[in-house]
Design a binder for these strands. Structure first.
Length: 571
RNA sequence: CGGGGCGUAGCGCAGCUUGGUAGCGCGCACGGUUCGGGACCGUGAGGUCGGAGGUUCGAAUCCUCUCGCCCCGACCA
């Protein structure tokens, strides 16, 4: 492509409505424009990236034996009504009426439609296993679309559905998709973690999310820096924390200290001063659960994982007790509550009970106890109820946990017979008896990946595409107003195209600075600079977007050098 | 849905408090000088001030309603 003819509307300034890097960059670099909230048009550059991502997905899905098809996005409501999702989906489902008043919707996902196809066409175990996928638009009227392509109301998804004769066979399909997803995400140049998720509400046996690590992501995940452990922050565990530095391991006698105006851990720490840190204190929080009140105790520098606490208690959720309830139950004010002498149920985190001679509220305003020790001064059920945090030890190895934001790039799920039972999608087995087809579903947010890759691959100058997904692999930049650089650049451009390289020739009559800035902004992985200066010595410059230095290469070696650089990065 | 912010030229913004001929920078067009990291000078095109209603001699500015967008939260197969 010749840049002078390309539709690449770049912006010098950051559009006011964009805050996230990928959102800013896709607008500034001319990849996409907004039409409405959560509704975008992909411009030529964005479309090229989309096609590259799709191509990688297709290659890997096809290699796994999946077959591409295309289902409608505009579908009759009867299928969702059949499974109950017409009502369950709520306002997120975009409903449409046709001229006769018939109820339709724009598909947010296709389990029902594909299950209907399967029940009509799959009759025999001989037709299984089967894995069908499509790449097309999905519609979800999200309550809050945000961050450009990261959360849209109309977006492009790859959704695959597997059909098997048994749970075991379905699990094999699931594992195969997991392997396939690993290959896809690696080829896309993404740093990601597979996060085991709880088996969800929908009769699922197993599910995993492919979380792309990005500080701008919506999900919180905890991941080890040494091993593969990764989990949603909600369910993440941490290994035992190192106990706080302590003058003596000897148990000191319990001591009640008057501590006015020390409601927060910070205030307590600064009151006691000296060597005291938050890790020397205990944080005691009173929670309301269905069965009544209980006191949760974690180390002062830790936070309570309320979901974990609720699970231990066997209840749906727990709520922090109000000031009044705290006063009534303990006779003291918030900030002075402690486990010593507490009459009710106490649940303490292992890291909390490991603190020797801890400082804790005395349940008497305004006093704290010094030298509180579990087992001597109070008894508690010891259960891990703290949130895993950045820097915590990994529960599985010697590594450290890091807290990340994640972008959910993919999700794989064993569905079981949830849909096939409801929709009577059955087959005849070898013995001639009717069985429900066992299903799995596998999604990738394709348009979201465009943004996710930008989130991971950019710097202050612009995007830095991995070569596999770059809209153009190389940009050839002639410099100067003489004819020679453009002539030479065009020669290299033609040669590269003949080699099948996606090349962009910056033939614009712009000053060098403008061309360099744009090349960096667009994020083209390689730049070949052809200037009269180099031509005199018979060289051109080759520069990688990710490196600050360029290298001189002989003119007739330029094409080979570009091919080498591209293939290096593909490896 | 709750909280906050913003709608004025393609983009970024000023003007609004105190009503009186709609401005600046970038971009765009033309001419000239420049030419290895977003050059400079000159000329010019481009706006129903998100929309509707009201107050007023007169509304971008004041009042009412409304639409849209962004951020935080709630929600999210």
């Amino acid at each position: 492509m010749r840049y002078s003819r390309a539709f690449i509307p770049t912006l010098k300034e950051v559009p006011k409505d964009a805050t996230m890097p990928s959102h800013v960059l896709m607008l500034r670099a001319g990849y996409a424009r907004m039409v409405g909230a959560g509704i975008y048009e992909l411009l030529p550059l964005g479309t090229r990236v989309l096609h590259k991502i799709e191509q990688i997905i297709r290659e890997e899905m096809d290699a796994a034996g999946a077959q591409e098809l295309l289902m409608p996005t505009f579908v009759p409501g009867e299928y969702f009504k059949e499974t109950g999702r017409w009502d369950l989906y709520g306002p997120t489902l975009l409903r449409v009426k046709d001229r006769k008043g018939g109820e339709y919707h724009l598909a947010p996902t296709h389990e029902e439609i594909i299950t209907d196809l399967a029940r009509r066409e799959v009759k025999s175990y001989r037709q299984l296993p089967l894995n069908l996928y499509q790449i097309q638009l999905k519609y979800r009227d999200e309550p809050r679309p945000r961050a450009g392509l990261l959360r849209c109301r109309e977006f492009i998804m790859k959704d695959a559905y597997s059909f098997d004769v048994s749970e075991e066979a379905a699990l094999r399909s699931y594992e195969q998709m997991r392997d396939t997803y690993h290959r896809i995400f690696k080829r896309l140049g993404l740093e990601y973690r597979v996060v085991e998720a709880d088996s969800g509400a929908i009769g699922g046996k197993q599910s995993a999310e492919f979380q792309i690590l990005a500080q701008t992501g919506e999900d919180w995940i905890v991941a080890c820096n040494a091993c593969d452990y990764a989990a949603n922050a909600e369910v993440a565990q941490a290994g035992p924390a190192a106990p706080p530095a302590s003058g003596t391991a000897e148990l000191q006698p319990l001591e009640k200290v008057k501590t006015p105006d020390t409601r927060s851990i910070d205030e307590v720490v600064s009151f006691f001063g000296d060597e005291t840190t938050a890790a020397h204190t205990l944080k005691s929080l009173l929670y309301l659960a269905a069965e009544g009140l209980c006191l949760a105790v974690v180390r002062g520098d830790h936070e309570v994982n309320e979901l974990g606490l609720a699970r231990h208690l066997g209840v749906e959720e727990v709520l922090l007790a109000s000031d009044a309830a705290v006063k009534e139950a303990t006779g003291t004010e918030i900030g002075f509550v402690g486990p010593v002498g507490f009459a009710g149920r106490i649940i303490a985190d292992p890291d909390a009970v490991a603190v020797p001679n801890a400082i804790a509220g005395a349940s008497d305003t305004p006093y704290h106890y010094k030298n509180v020790n579990h087992g001597r001064d109070f008894e508690a059920e010891v259960v891990s109820i703290r949130q895993a945090a950045s820097g915590d030890p990994c529960p599985n190895c010697d590594g450290k946990l890091e807290l990340y934001r994640g972008i959910e790039g993919g999700h794989i799920f064993v569905l079981g017979t949830h849909y096939s039972d409801k929709m009577h999608a059955t087959f005849l087995d070898e013995a001639g008896s009717s069985q429900s087809i066992v299903m799995g579903c596998y999604g990738i947010g394709v348009s979201r990946l465009i943004a996710a890759i930008m989130e991971q691959h950019h710097d202050e100058h612009g995007i830095r595409w991995p070569v596999n997904v770059a809209p153009y692999e190389v940009i050839i930049t002639p410099i100067g107003k003489e004819a020679a650089p453009l002539t030479q650049a065009t020669e290299i451009y033609d040669a590269l195209r003949a080699e099948g390289v996606d090349a962009l020739l910056d033939d614009r009559a712009e000053r060098p600075g403008v061309k360099f800035k744009d090349a960096d902004l667009l994020g083209i992985p390689l730049r070949v600079t052809v200037g009269s200066r180099g031509l005199k010595q018979g060289t051109v410059e080759l520069k990688k977007r990710t490196e600050s230095e360029s290298q001189d290469v002989p003119i007739d070696g330029a094409v080979a050098a570009v091919l080498t650089a591209i293939n290096d990065r593909e490896g």
